[in-house]
Measured scan of single mutants.
Amino acid sequence: TRVETATETAWISLVTALHLVLGLNAVLGLLLLRWQFPAHYRRLRHALW
């Protein structure tokens, strides 16, 4: 059971790390998009709101 718990903890930390990386990538991607295409982003925002 100790090995199972260790594997579980490893999986949880792995999934958490993946989520963090994906979240960071999403934020960075959005920031890059805003920086690269400000006009396009503004138009998109007007369409959404």
Rank of each mutant, 00 (worst) to 15 (best):
T1M: 14
R2K: 14
V3A: 07
V3L: 13
V3C: 06
V3E: 03
V3D: 00
V3H: 01
E4P: 04
T5H: 06
T5W: 06
T5Y: 04
A6C: 09
A6Q: 09
A6G: 13
A6N: 12
A6V: 08
T7V: 10
E8P: 10
T9R: 13
A10T: 13
A10C: 12
W11H: 15
W11E: 09
W11F: 09
W11Q: 13
I12N: 13
I12C: 14
I12V: 08
S13L: 12
S13W: 14
S13D: 04
S13P: 15
L14Q: 10
L14N: 14
L14C: 09
T16H: 09
T16R: 03
A17D: 00
A17L: 13
L18E: 02
H19G: 15
H19C: 15
H19W: 15
L20V: 12
L20S: 03
L20G: 08
L20I: 06
L20A: 11
L20K: 00
L22I: 09
L22S: 02
G23T: 09
G23S: 09
G23R: 03
L24D: 03
L24I: 08
L24P: 01
N25D: 00
N25V: 15
N25Q: 15
N25L: 15
N25S: 15
A26K: 02
A26Q: 02
A26W: 00
V27C: 07
V27S: 04
L28K: 00
L28T: 07
L28Y: 01
L28D: 00
L28E: 02
L28N: 03
L28A: 12
G29F: 14
G29T: 04
G29M: 11
L30S: 03
L30T: 04
L30E: 00
L31H: 02
L31S: 04
L31Y: 05
L31C: 08
L31V: 10
L32I: 13
L32Q: 01
L32G: 01
L32D: 01
L33N: 00
L33T: 01
L33F: 13
L33M: 09
L33P: 00
R34F: 11
W35C: 09
W35Q: 11
W35L: 04
W35V: 07
Q36G: 05
Q36F: 09
Q36W: 08
Q36S: 05
F37M: 03
F37D: 01
F37Q: 02
F37A: 06
F37E: 01
F37S: 03
P38E: 04
P38W: 05
P38Q: 06
A39G: 06
A39I: 09
A39D: 14
A39M: 09
A39W: 06
A39T: 09
A39P: 04
H40C: 12
H40P: 04
Y41C: 10
Y41M: 07
Y41W: 14
Y41G: 03
Y41H: 03
R42V: 07
R43I: 06
R43A: 06
R43Q: 08
R43D: 03
L44H: 03
L44P: 01
L44G: 02
L44S: 01
L44Y: 03
R45P: 03
R45V: 12
R45N: 04
R45G: 05
H46N: 13
H46V: 05
H46K: 09
H46F: 07
H46P: 01
A47T: 09
A47M: 03
A47L: 08
L48N: 01
L48V: 10
L48H: 05
W49H: 07
W49G: 04
W49P: 02
